[in-house]
Amino acid sequence: MNIFRFAADLLHVFAIATLLLKIWNTRSCAGISGKSQILFGLVYVTRYLDLFTTYVSLYNSVMKVFFVVTSAVAIFLIYVQYKKTYEHDLDLFRIELLLLPCAMLSLVINHEDIVLEVLWTFSTYLESVAIIPQLFMVKKSGGIEKFMIRYLIAFGSYRAIYLINWAYRYIMESHYDLIAIFAGILQTIIYILGFFLLRGVKVVVSDKEEEP
């Protein structure tokens, strides 16, 4: 564990907390892509199956459980609790366009042909593109709320800082994982492209957000 990894993980937690608190406080999931949240749910579930097979540290296990649980909560809030506020007519990206290539690529390019490893690889590829439905939803709606800007910046910087962590680990520990590095670079590029795609989108303030 180094400072880059810890800082990145904190940003990851901050991003998720931003999203959940927004839904909770405004009792609305307007502007949030349920499809991206489903993809993130899949990412965490397929990656953290090693909770049952490998123990790394208490920190590691607690964070994994946190990501799986909060992701399930987000999906529950969007599709059950605050279903009426979910803007499904704006959340139109077809997730099979992301799921199928990631599934195929993880079967072809992985570290080892065993189920857990292929699922970990799938999860790593999928995470790099999971934000795309959210970016398209914002683009389609033409407006973005401030919480979503914070969410995207925090989520984008989390993986970018992981890139620094990987460079650091390569230098200090001669440790590297090409699949993680490749996907991390792709993920960071997608967030940067996303910010270009969204420039010109109007920053809106929702009525409910202004309530104390």
Partner: peptide
């Protein structure tokens, strides 16, 4: 390469 397959990151 067992070390690489123990994914110790999140």
């Amino acid at each position: 390469d067992q070390d690489q397959l123990t994914h110790d990151e999140l």
